[in-house]
């Protein structure tokens, strides 16, 4: 079964074409990586898939578990099982992290016809997940991402992913700004979710993250198009020879 199928996708931001015809297919249970230099359209692709305003789709299609993804509101995409881990997680002063996480979790539970978790049930679950990510418990009490270090923000993204239990996650440069220890923790968090029912699209500039999260397939995005695809070894090749060589060959 195909989890995500993208065909001929083109999109623009402020009238400037960024995605120039993306074709990509991620089968259920597989983890794919997209690598590319700055400005190649990596983040645009993740925002288009999550439904951000201002990212205008001008052609092509994206199908998620058989549904037309591009016709859905952002919260409907989440309810369908799509999760975006942000490159720059947003700070929400005045919104407590625990309140935020529980509201999100219960919104998704409702969309699946399940009952709400009460505060106690939620806390128990959240504490369990936080321990696995080596997160101090006071991060629940603070405003969402407010005053969090770069690493704490990324861990908070992975915590949300672990709690919300998506069918597919898009990780947008989750490795940026992480030291090696934080990188390991985040990678462990992602690997813990891997299985036959979980798919992922890992977007990264560097091969480093892919040492810890080993992908099934690697795609190279340059100039808004996927110019090359291959197995995990492609990431190593890129690391050795750089994007320029792929670009020249394409």
């Amino acid at each position: 079964m195909t989890m995500l199928k993208i065909e001929g996708l083109t999109a623009e931001v402020d009238g400037k074409p960024i995605l120039q015809g993306i074709d990509l297919e991620i089968p259920l249970g597989e983890l794919h990586a997209i690598m590319g230099p700055n400005g190649s359209g990596k983040s645009t692709l993740s925002y288009v898939l999550a439904g951000r305003e201002g990212y205008e789709v001008t052609g092509g299609s994206a199908t998620f578990a058989g549904q037309d993804l591009l016709a859905m509101e952002p919260e409907q995409r989440a309810a369908a099982g799509l999760f975006l881990a942000f490159q720059y997680p947003v700070e929400l002063p005045g919104v407590g992290n625990a309140n935020f996480l529980r509201t999100a979790l219960n919104a998704l539970r409702r969309s699946r016809g399940e009952s709400d978790l009460d505060a106690m049930q939620f806390l128990k679950l959240a504490r369990e997940r936080m321990r696995a990510l080596h997160m101090p418990e006071d991060m629940l009490k603070r405003g969402v991402n407010v005053g969090f270090s770069g690493g704490e923000k990324k861990r908070n993204e992975v915590l949300q992913m672990a709690l919300l239990g998506p069918r597919m996650a898009i990780l947008d440069e989750t490795d940026s700004g992480l030291d090696i220890d934080a990188l390991r923790i985040v990678a462990d968090g992602v690997n813990a979710l891997r299985g036959p029912e979980f798919s992922a699209l890992v977007i990264t500039h560097y091969q480093r993250l892919l040492d810890y999260i080993v992908p099934d397939r690697v795609h190279v995005l340059i100039g808004g198009r996927i110019v090359k695809s291959g197995g995990p070894e492609l990431a190593q090749e890129l690391e050795a020879s750089g994007y320029a060589s792929v670009q020249a060959a394409a």
């Binding site: 919260e75 997680p89 919104v95 509201t103 999100a104």
Partner: peptide
């Protein structure tokens, strides 16, 4: 901020009220 909340499955009306309360 609104987009961030909605990507977590929080419906738009609820997301707006969370931000107003905040």
């Amino acid at each position: 901020q609104l987009f961030y909340l909605r990507t977590r499955g929080i419906p738009e009306a609820r997301a707006r009220s969370m931000l107003v309360e905040a």
